[in-house]
Design a protein around this nucleic acid. Structure first.
Lengths: 142, 142
DNA sequence: TATTGTTATACTCTATAACTATA
DNA sequence: TATAGTTATAGAGTATAACAATA
């Protein structure tokens, strides 16, 4: 992949292919857990801090609430999460992890660190952390 | 978007949302040119250096040759590129830019620099260049 | 036999519109 | 009236399989 092509300097190209490489590294590690990377992202989301409704979770991930319904369905089918009617507002469903969901979350996050480490291996530890920090600032727009 | 959530530190989340933000910034600027970002990427690819066949182009973008067929169809319909039978191998189609395609490419690349500049505005010029260099190394895996 | 381009098809991800139950 | 969740549906974007033309 001779990379002095103009198209390879486009930020869009670089972001897309960094994502593709990360997925190639991570998905084989998730497969033994019976989940995908997107499903693990949900476990990380709902396993972190106070219980969230589906819509609150969707807002934090930047996805549509209808997309969230399908994702929660998948995890519920695997018995990794439960939907619970929110006390105080019976329209809302709080999503909480089952004991098995919590186990998968912990293992999955460990495995994510391995995959991210492999992706960032060409960078030193300092540059890797600077890359993550720079992306963070860009995404927050600050 | 309170960003001390664990899910917001996932590299997958950061790469995806950096891409989404870039698309939000860039697509409105491409629209007056009558093209999308993906179409401009093809103009940049085929307008750069010696003429490439569809399959050579697909390899450089990391996409399937069947996907390339549809993308070239779009640009041909807009009369921004032409397919030419390769001299010496009549199976191959060299993709070349029309005069109009070349004009759109030049303007599009200028506009891309604006959008990328807006995305990277939170970073200083040095950090912006380091981010691009780090992504480049990660994508090349070196 | 192998390769290039092509078509048909299918799968994933995502969003919009319309429904229901609750508020 | 408005909101949370849901369903049906449709649009991107992508890939696999099969075929025609050419090597």
């Amino acid at each position: 992949m001779s990379s002095d092509l103009a198209v390879h300097r486009r930020l869009g190209y670089l972001l897309k292919h960094a994502q593709l490489r990360l997925a190639e590294l991570a998905e084989p590690l998730y497969a033994p857990l019976g989940i995908t990377g997107r499903q693990l992202a949900l476990l990380t989301l709902f396993g972190d801090g106070p219980a969230l409704s589906q819509q609150e979770g969707a807002a934090r991930l930047g996805i549509d609430r209808t997309t969230m319904v399908a994702l929660v369905d998948e995890l519920e089918d695997k018995e990794l999460v439960r939907r619970e009617v929110a006390p105080g507002d019976r329209r809302k469903r709080l999503v909480t992890l089952t004991a098995e969901g919590e186990r998968v979350r912990v293992t999955g996050e460990e495995v994510t660190r391995q995959a991210e480490g492999a992706l960032l291996a060409p960078l030193g530890e300092g540059d890797a952390e600077r890359l993550r920090a720079a992306l963070h600032r860009v995404v927050r727009g600050e």
